[in-house]
Amino acid sequence: MSYVKPLFHHPSLKKNKVGYVKADYEGVISTLCAGCGHDSISGAIVQACYEISLEPHRLAKLSGIGCSSKTPTYFLSNSHGFNSVHGRMPSITTGANMANKELIYLGVSGDGDTASIGMGQFVHAIRRNLNMVYIVMNNGCYGLTKGQDSATADFGSISKAGSDNPYQGIDLAGLALELNATFVGRSFSGDKSQLVPMIKAAMAHPGFAFLDVISPCVTFNNNKGSTKSYSHVRAHIEETSIFDFVPHQEALTVEYDKGTSKELELFDGSKIQLSKLAPEWDPTDRFSAVNRLHEAKANGQILTGLYYINTESEDLHGKLGTVDQPLNKLQQEALCPGSEKLEEINASFR
């Protein structure tokens, strides 16, 4: 069952630049378990869209199947949504994006949805540099089918039933880096101050933006010994930097020490500001990002923050060389070559 939230707007609620209050970005009330990490991520998405003053119909939200994939009903009710089939969100998003290059595509998936059944589509969306935000709500298990280990469960992580995982975990952010995804980061559902600006930056990035967000499953994978529990993540988190996103035409507010900070300008003029950088890591240098990730892993740390960004990538439309106008706006007059042309074609077959 879904419940509609009362649309009661407190008069003091501030409107954003396009005239919407935060509630305009919300969805129906969540039916996920109380405390589920996924709900926090939904909240961060609402916050990010409100803050960047996105008109809700400029975004399409898509997902696969799972507790995580249910979340698009819990945010952005004024946006079109598509809850597709298990593991196949990337192909639906690819087609949607081909039809209209002007919308923002936000794909939501789970670790089962992406790292197992949907692995093929995930890597191919990266390969094509599809212009989308791809969020994995990563809880190391299959929540919706009652807690089986997923392929991102770490080696040795202990399940609720007490068994330890004998398989290597798949690090989706590491994989995305390896495949040359053009925007890769990891965050934690419990760290809104980092997650919100990362979502904003991902939306501004004109290519495949991947966010692996650790999102504890309170019901099936929050036990002692699980490496995806709230307490384990909090105890082992290590940030690449303090991350801030500054939309186009807004001034930077904080000045950081030179040497440990970096400013990156995105395609649309917005900026990413990073401070407290680790030495020997440069977010525009993929090799340094790979090294940084491996180093953190070797130290038993869960590295969050932006790993890598390529600010000059060419997305799938660029690679295909499609016209500027969205394909779904082309009318019959432009698309149908007409009978005279067909006569010529017929003649070539005589």
Partner: peptide, 30 residues
């Protein structure tokens, strides 16, 4: 010299029809 079409060799038939569904859902004939 730009194209009024997108022609994609998908990774398999599941992806191929997924792309078609996404495109028609979004208002293009596919």
């Amino acid at each position: 010299g730009k194209k009024q079409y997108a022609f994609i060799q998908a990774e398999d038939e599941l992806a191929a029809i997924g792309m078609v569904i996404g495109a028609t859902w979004n208002g293009a004939r596919s």
